[in-house]
Write a protein that binds this DNA or RNA. Structure first.
Lengths: 135, 135, 135, 135
DNA sequence: GTGGTCTAGACCACC
DNA sequence: GTGGTCTAGACCACG
């Protein structure tokens, strides 16, 4: 788990952490049941206040990504979204729309866009496969 | 100029606007000399305070991306270095990855994801068609 | 919206606030769209730190009970749970179990318990009816 | 002595234990002179640290609810004032109301709610039957 | 040691 | 004025 923060992006630090942990989970770099770095040392390492790390972890817990056991630590949950199908699709559509708008701004056409999506999906699948059997 | 704002991302609205205009400019979607929408109608269309739009434009001017001629409007300045294809794809991949990560946590599989991407692309194409020939 | 805090109960203050707001919404004392007290004045009135109120409101927003519009205020959302049926029943079972255990400790039998549940359901329905048409 | 702990409620575990023992004592579910489970097995059964159980018992002793005879165990002291029926129903109503509020926000209707209550009551009766004649 | 709550006070984005 | 983020530092519950 290597976290990299950008203090000038305007994006809140705690949300940067949330997104990176979620990405690590999605790519298999973090496996279900695995423990996350504990709050205090991580805060020191990132040169950020303890509360900021705690806020990131609280957000992750409320999203059902991790579980925090007081006195023990924080652990990645086996995933399983609790949401209705429609809600899941709506949440996902927001992210997809952001990508489509970016493609439009970057003058990337539909064909090229779909090809790129396919490529990135492959990349993630390969990462996950590798993470499971890291021979 | 298609601008898509996310009021919940934590990223300041005016920065979202700045980044999108810069991306459009760097990729040629906006041409040098082209005029940007004026503040008041744009603020209405985006349902945002005029101050926010003004702040975004001020930031863009201070970064040398646009030029504001008081009384005439804002215009895109000559474009130093348009992005190369690889750079564009890399920037776009970041957005696509965000969507893929979200899909993973929402337990949306590859099939359903691709179907949803197609749907959203259709929605945007319809929007654009409407915008070109509005009633 | 009258909030009453117990600083000695051991239950975190911000959770007491969350529960009371949810109760107010369920009883109709707070109607969808209605605005909640703003953070700073409420903090003063309750003699609690601003951050504590903010944390309560953040929790309510993450539970989908309220919506907070920066610069405008916080508002009660029209309710509609985003969860799957199974998840809803599981979450609800936890609350029901707590009541059943309490009944056991208080030597209240099944018959009397069910009668009491019915009574309380009636009370809430009457409150809601009254709140809608407060002739 | 049936103890049900909620590790996510925010309320300290040892206080949950104290409150449940007090409720059981005040209603007669626990009789004066009756012995409480000893610390080690209880801690195991509840999957809780022995220190936590010890802290709960210490608190109960300091409140005069139980008496600990070192080497012998803990015993319920003579019970000053058992709750009257109205008091019991009022205490119970608080728990029931919490469940009803939760049901409202989870969009669970009266029918489904009552069905779920019945289900959970059955579950607990089965548990108790098992506890009396264990294998 | 772990995570969680609360306070106090600063600064930012937005209306 | 509104809500949101971050810091600094104290205290608590739990293992």
């Amino acid at each position: 788990m290597l976290l990299q923060l950008n203090f000038k992006s305007g994006k809140p630090v705690y949300l940067q952490m949330v997104d990176q942990v979620k990405a690590a989970a999605a790519s298999g770099a973090l496996q279900p049941g695995e423990s996350l770095p504990s709050i205090r040392p991580l805060a020191e390492q990132l040169r950020v206040n303890r509360n900021t790390v705690a806020k990131a972890y609280a957000e992750l817990e409320s999203q059902g990504v991790i579980e925090s056991l007081p006195g023990k630590g924080c652990f990645l949950k086996a995933n399983g979204s609790p949401f209705k199908r429609e809600v899941r699709q709506q949440l996902l559509s927001e992210e997809i729309d952001a990508a489509i708008v970016q493609a439009h701004h970057l003058q990337v056409g539909r064909e090229e866009f779909l090809k790129l999506v396919d490529q990135r999906l492959d990349v993630f699948e390969q990462k996950r496969a590798k993470a499971i059997s890291p021979a």
